[in-house]
């Protein structure tokens, strides 16, 4: 009896072969596209980070890289990396990167403190994955500006700010939360508190 010839596309191996080939093609295209764009993305992210450090510290950021080189030094102490701002060789403030859990993912922020480490002089969000239109409003200026000029120490303890509704007037230890985004607002207050406790503890004696 003559053996019937089976076409390759009807064999058991064809799906496996096809999947391998199409995966290699797709990954190849993506790798090429990534290679073409990653330099641009990295440059942008670096410039964005530098710009945000300058702005959080209240420094000019007209030509980002030049201004950054002029004012900012990156320093590390007790495993905490931070930015030191100097003007005419006098330290004018510090900027600390901080992070913690948001509702959907990690939130990264920058907090600028005065030289005495007693007051917040600027606060900004560098990365967040909160719900657009709700939690993502933590990046809005009115929300972030509330932290400006707030004391962080009361009777040798770091203050934990409490949240109040958006339409009420906040006192020195209160922050107006975002309507419909209580979890994200609380996350910000917690991230700030947890990181400040660690920073103050490590820097208290020096």
């Amino acid at each position: 009896m003559e053996k019937q010839k089976i076409h390759f596309s009807e064999t058991k191996f064809y799906p496996v072969f096809f999947m391998i080939v199409i995966t290699i093609i797709c990954v190849g295209i993506l790798a090429t596209f990534y290679h073409l764009t990653h330099k641009r993305v990295e440059d942008y992210e670096l410039a964005q980070m530098r710009k945000q450090v300058l702005e959080t510290l209240g420094l000019p950021a007209t030509s980002v890289n030049e201004d950054y080189e002029r004012y900012i030094r990156v320093r590390t102490r007790d495993n905490i990396t931070f930015y030191e701002a100097k003007r005419d060789n006098i330290v004018i403030g510090y900027c600390f990167p901080m992070q913690g859990s948001g509702l959907w993912g990690t939130i990264r922020a920058l907090a600028a403190l005065n030289v005495e480490l007693s007051e917040i002089t600027g606060f900004s969000i560098t990365e967040q994955n909160e719900t657009p239109g709700l939690g993502a409003r933590i990046t809005e200026a009115w929300f972030l500006d509330q932290f400006k000029n707030k004391s962080i120490i009361f009777k040798d303890e770091v203050i934990k700010y409490s949240l109040i509704p958006e339409d009420e007037i906040a006192d020195l230890t209160e922050i107006q939360q975002i309507t419909g985004a209580t979890a994200s607002s609380r996350a910000i207050v917690n991230i700030l508190y947890n990181n400040l406790v660690e920073i103050i503890q490590k820097f208290k004696n020096s």
Partner: peptide, 11 residues
């Protein structure tokens, strides 16, 4: 590809 494009050209 859409995600990479947005990140690179419309950050």
């Amino acid at each position: 590809i859409v995600d990479l494009f947005l990140k690179a050209y419309l950050p």
